[in-house]
Amino acid sequence: MNPDAATIAAGAPIEVDLTPVAEGQDIKVFWRGKPIYISHRTKKQIEEARSVPLASLPDPQTDEARIKSGHEQWLVVVGICTHLGCIPIAHEGNYDGFFCPCHGSQYDTSGRIRQGPAPANLAVPPYQFVSDTKIQIG
């Protein structure tokens, strides 16, 4: 009952062009049926993500560990709440990050869980920068 060959093949890596995403904007692409948020973060958002003391986080992880170095402005996360799988809404909640409408989990500008029942940070999918303006997810 595991995924069949066609499903696996359809889950192959995809390339996303980042040029049209302006600063402060974000886009949602689908990869393997999952929504992937790609946020072009502002200076302020990056600052917010980096100024939080790690000890205060439920699932401690630095912002640096969640992005690709040299591309600080780009946050790429799987838009699936780690609680029960709903899709959080971007740019909502108390932390300027993501807010899950189902059970009220709130994530910050680095996609880390800050408040609510979710046990973990939003997952970072496997991806790499093909060029400065293009990433490959998967």
Binding site: M1, N2, P3, D4, T7, G11, R32, G33, K34
Partner: peptide
């Protein structure tokens, strides 16, 4: 969960099973 879904998310294989 992947086994239940038959894919990487709830989708057509899930509905079929």
């Amino acid at each position: 969960v992947t086994l239940l879904w038959g894919g990487y998310a709830v989708g057509n294989p899930t509905l079929n099973r």
